[in-house]
């Protein structure tokens, strides 16, 4: 059964036309815009950068040599090497961008020299005349961008992910009184974090002292130490060749 008819109020013809017009416009555009509500899912490339290579978890470890990590003493005449993921602007290699320190005496070794190889991807740190002091622990600190080294194409020279964590001022593992240690960063497993934590603790005094000299910690892209042993026969590879 139909209800009774309803009287209608009066409006102008113009309002009627606009009403129908709006319906047509929005309806049509809604159909057209159906596929247009998408979000951008194109992958973006990471920003260009030159990394100071450091990853002790690889086989063999990607670390500067000689290095206390290897538990092998350096020779007094060893040339220390570290590598970069790309060429470095030679003009940015200057005093202050590479610091060589006698960690045993806490004195800078100003007579040590450093240079980039032909490809400008490897940093060579040569001992002072007479060689590295035997029995001493030598530290090398590399300063990256923006105050230090810069890539050949102007890219920043930055720390590797592993060294980024090593230079952190906060522990990488938490070891509760009961239960196993856990990583404090989602980037590392507990085992990885435990290994890097030993290195972080060992290097912290060195990084603190360099930071005290006015070098921002965020610009320290690499630091390592090696201990100089007495000269041995030529077959003893205390100073590992560049690899």
């Amino acid at each position: 059964m139909l209800p009774p008819d309803i009287p209608r109020v009066d409006v102008t013809r113009k309002v009627v036309a606009l009403t129908l017009g709006a319906a047509v416009v929005v309806g049509a555009e809604a159909l057209g815009g159906f596929a247009g509500g998408c979000v951008d899912t194109d992958l973006a490339e990471p920003p260009p950068a030159v990394f100071a290579l450091f990853d002790p978890s690889t086989t063999p470890p990607t670390i500067p040599l000689p290095n206390d990590i290897t538990m092998t003493a350096a020779q007094p005449d060893s040339v220390a090497h570290s590598s970069f993921s790309g060429p470095v602007d030679r003009s940015t290699l200057r005093a202050g961008t590479v610091m060589v320190i006698d960690a045993t005496t806490s004195a800078p070794l100003i007579m040590a020299s450093f240079a980039l190889d032909e490809m400008a991807t490897t940093l060579d740190v040569s001992p002072p005349t007479g060689g590295w002091p035997v029995g001493h622990r030598i530290a090398v600190v590399v300063r990256g961008s923006p105050g230090g080294l810069v890539g050949a194409k102007g890219e920043p020279v930055v720390a590797s992910p592993a060294f980024y964590l090593v230079r952190s001022t906060s522990p990488l593992v938490q070891c509760p009184a009961t239960g196993p240690c856990v990583s404090t960063t989602p980037l590392l497993t507990a085992q990885q974090a435990f290994v890097l934590e030993q290195l972080r603790v060992a290097l912290a005094p060195l990084l603190d002292s360099v930071q005290a000299l006015g070098v921002p910690r965020s610009e320290i892209v690499l630091a390592w130490t090696f201990t100089v042993g007495p000269p041995v026969g030529a077959t003893d590879a205390g100073a590992l060749p560049r690899g």
């Binding site: 194109d42 490339e45 990471p46």
Partner: peptide, 21 residues
């Protein structure tokens, strides 16, 4: 399924925390 996970992180981590599907 074909989404994009973009990660804004320090540039030092940009290679390991890069955009991924």
């Amino acid at each position: 399924g074909g989404g994009r996970l973009s990660i804004s992180s320090p540039i030092e981590l940009s290679q390991v925390l890069r955009d991924v599907r």
